[in-house]
Amino acid sequence: MTKILAVDDSASMRQMVVFTLQSAGYEVVEASDGLLALDAAKSGHFDLVLTDVNMPNMDGIALVRELRQLEAYKYTPILMLTTETAGDRKMAGRSAGATGWVVKPFNPDKLLATIKKVIG
């Protein structure tokens, strides 16, 4: 089963994301910030990481940078799911190694189609 790591500091946002992903048949593990996500990524294997940008402790862009240093996540699709629309933040995400940038509020069908596309 395809396994996704969903990272967001907002509990209600995680609830919506998890519901959307599970209803499409994905196995989902949640993390509430970048540091916890990095721990989860190291102790398991994920086919895709879906992460918020603005989070305490370690933000989403730093998380992408850290994940790309790990052999196991060099080529894993990483999508940012964020309220951020600023061009400089998006460019920072791209430079860090993110696969794509999804702006909230998300359309569940389009989010799932994008995930399917990047997982390949």
């Binding site: 791209r94 940038w101 702006v103 909230k104």
Partner: peptide
């Protein structure tokens, strides 16, 4: 026109 954010793949 439901409010929804854009999706960009790099």
């Amino acid at each position: 026109k439901p409010l929804e954010g854009e999706i960009d793949l790099f």
